[in-house]
């Protein structure tokens, strides 16, 4: 099979994300990238763990003064649900249903955008209410670098998926764009994987003390 072939519901392969050479390379290359991302986030986590609550004097707030459970909980639910909706999108991709795939991707985007809005509100709150900024302490730098890098990944994912939807709006599904959608959904799940560790290590462990 080649990428530009016009396919129908009957001829659509079982694994459209891996049925051309280009798709196979993309799949492998993207997982290699995710291995690298794991190392990147692990070093940011390591830095955060080493610098947590390292502040110059007692006027600075510590992790347990800053974080609030309800906000983190809502953000977690939003991102976790967006992971499920992108699974739905890939389910419809495998069934050669471009319309439903796009619908679920748009829902994923909305949930991701809501998560990002909460995060911006949260950072704004810390800066203005607690004077906890990127330059106020080593703790601040480590916190904003780790959580901000994740937020940046969410923002990039939103742009990526939006671009894919707009670019392929009138084209329908083929073996050229199916791997692109699949790889974007892998990226989105990986963002959720990182968030699971952020809400556990940064927020929950921060509140425990």
């Amino acid at each position: 099979m080649h990428a530009e072939e016009k396919l129908t519901y009957e001829t659509w392969p079982a694994e459209p994300e891996k049925s051309t050479l280009e798709a196979k390379n993309k799949f492998l290359g993207f997982w290699f990238f995710l291995g690298g991302e794991t190392v990147l986030f692990a070093s940011l986590f390591a830095t955060y763990l080493a610098l947590k609550d390292k502040v110059p004097d007692s006027t600075h707030h510590l992790a347990k003064d800053l974080f609030e459970l309800p906000l983190t909980f809502v953000a977690t639910m939003l991102l976790l649900t967006s992971s499920l909706t992108s699974v739905y999108a890939m389910y419809h991709m495998k069934n050669f249903n471009a319309k439903k795939m796009n619908l679920w991707l748009v829902i994923t985007l909305l949930l991701g955008a809501a998560f990002l809005v909460l995060e911006i509100y949260e950072f704004n709150h810390y800066v203005h209410e607690f004077h906890h900024t990127f330059t106020s302490s080593a703790f601040g730098s480590a916190f904003y670098t780790l959580v901000g890098f994740h937020g940046g990944h969410v923002a990039f994912g939103l742009l990526w998926i939006t671009t894919l939807i707009v670019r392929n709006a009138k084209r329908g599904l083929d073996l050229y764009n199916a791997p692109k959608f699949y790889v974007a959904s892998l990226y989105w799940h990986f963002i959720d994987v990182v968030w699971v560790f952020i809400f556990t290590v940064v927020y929950l462990m921060g509140m425990v003390g």
Partner: peptide
């Protein structure tokens, strides 16, 4: 191959986290 890539990343990441947390 994806498993190998991911677990290699996890291994390097785990060593980094171990090093940074024992250093303090």
């Amino acid at each position: 191959a994806p498993s190998m890539f991911l677990y290699s990343g996890v291994l390097v990441g785990a060593v980094t986290i171990l090093a940074f947390s024992t250093i303090i």
